[in-house]
Amino acid sequence: MFKLALNLKILSEMQQKPVQHYRYNADVLTVTKEDVGYFLTHFQPENEPGLMHWLNFHSMEDKEAITRFCEKLSIDKLIQEDLFKGTKRPRLEEYEGYIFFSITSALPSRENDFELRKERISFILGKNYLVSFQERVSDHFPEVRERLEMKRGKIRVQGPDFLLFRMLEAITDNYTEVVEEISSIIVTLESLVIRLPRSEVLRRIEWQKRKLGELRKIIHPIRELVGQIDRAENHFFSEENDHYFLDLKDNCIVLIEEIEEQKQILDGLTNLYYATQGQKMNEIMKVLTVISAVFIPLTFIVGVYGMNFKYMPELNWRYGYFYAIGFMFILASSLIFVFYKRGWLRRNK
């Protein structure tokens, strides 16, 4: 409960001050939270080469101010357009003085199980700074902030490329959480298919398939992007950090394999659903067949004595009606007994 309240407080602060600036090295850390206009004049990483800078935008609503900020950093016009349109496939784009790329993040959606929460995040990596742009207010990087503030690990003594690695790692962790969430939903669906095989269950299975398909489309380009980072030959990425990005690539491969496994499980549940429905239909047909088998001879007897011929000796017999009813009762009972002994009236478990 405390953690939820803390997260709500953080999100509220992000809405009021949508830009966060972390300015740090091994000995210094300052955190500034303001609107975009403030950083048009106060973000000057080129004047502080001994410090690393992380500027994180939690909203893209103030397009005019963000455009002016990008012009201040001499960001190419095409990049500025891509920040707001986001139509390109994720790939590393190298320019003079900086590198740009965008990816799609995903977060667990606890409120419902039919929608994948996605958000596009863009990065501009310079010599001693990293600028990240999020489409809306959401906290993807709490662990990164904690590492900076608590001086955990070596993030404070590394360059912006290592900070980028930590942020990409946080995003892949979000992918893992989404897969785990879908996996827990699949366990629930498996029990529902067995106990309550309704059409609603099949729809939920299809929703999970769609979510896994979307997640795979998101992760696959990330794997290629991390591979481009590993192969990049420039001064933005330190060779000593190459193995971290290789680990990210391996994590993406593992996630894709796990997604395929979960999709196979869902395909199996779909087959199980149709098999269960077929079994129920067979049970219904068996009951209808037994009823028909019981009433066919009775219908024959009734039909014979309902032909209204003038000369039918049994029609004038005093006890003919009672004998006919008794005979039909015995015949029906005998058939039901035979069907029961053969197991045709028992429900399959």
Rank of each mutant, 00 (worst) to 15 (best):
L78A: 12
L78V: 09
L78Q: 13
I79K: 06
I79L: 12
Q80T: 07
Q80E: 13
Q80Y: 05
Q80V: 04
E81R: 11
E81D: 15
E81H: 10
D82K: 02
D82T: 00
L83P: 00
L83Q: 02
F84K: 03
F84H: 06
F84E: 04
F84R: 01
K85R: 12
K85N: 13
K85M: 09
G86P: 00
G86F: 03
T87E: 12
T87W: 05
K88Q: 12
K88Y: 09
K88F: 07
K88H: 11
K88N: 10
K88D: 08
K88C: 07
R89N: 02
R89G: 04
R89Q: 06
P90Y: 01
P90A: 03
P90W: 02
P90M: 01
P90N: 03
P90D: 02
R91D: 04
L92P: 09
L92V: 08
L92W: 03
E93W: 00
E93L: 06
E93A: 06
E93Y: 01
E93I: 04
E94M: 06
E94V: 14
Y95F: 13
Y95C: 05
E96G: 09
E96W: 07
E96C: 09
G97C: 11
G97E: 12
G97A: 14
G97V: 03
G97N: 11
Y98I: 01
Y98A: 06
Y98Q: 06
I99Q: 02
I99A: 01
I99K: 00
I99D: 00
I99C: 03
F100N: 05
F100M: 05
F100Q: 03
F100G: 01
F100D: 05
F101L: 01
F101C: 01
F101R: 01
F101Q: 01
F101G: 01
F101I: 03
S102P: 01
S102L: 03
I103L: 09
T104S: 10
T104Y: 09
T104H: 08
S105K: 05
S105I: 06
S105H: 05
A106P: 08
A106D: 03
L107Q: 13
L107V: 13
L107R: 11
L107I: 14
P108Y: 13
P108G: 10
P108F: 13
P108A: 13
P108W: 09
S109N: 15
S109R: 12
S109G: 11
R110I: 15
R110S: 15
R110Y: 15
R110W: 14
E111R: 14
E111W: 09
E111D: 15
E111Q: 15
E111A: 14
E111V: 13
N112Q: 14
N112S: 15
N112C: 12
D113S: 15
F114S: 15
F114L: 12
F114D: 15
F114T: 15
L116H: 10
L116K: 09
L116W: 08
R117P: 07
R117M: 14
R117C: 11
R117Q: 12
R117S: 13
K118A: 02
K118G: 04
K118R: 10
E119V: 02
E119W: 07
E119K: 07
R120W: 03
R120Q: 13
R120K: 13
R120T: 04
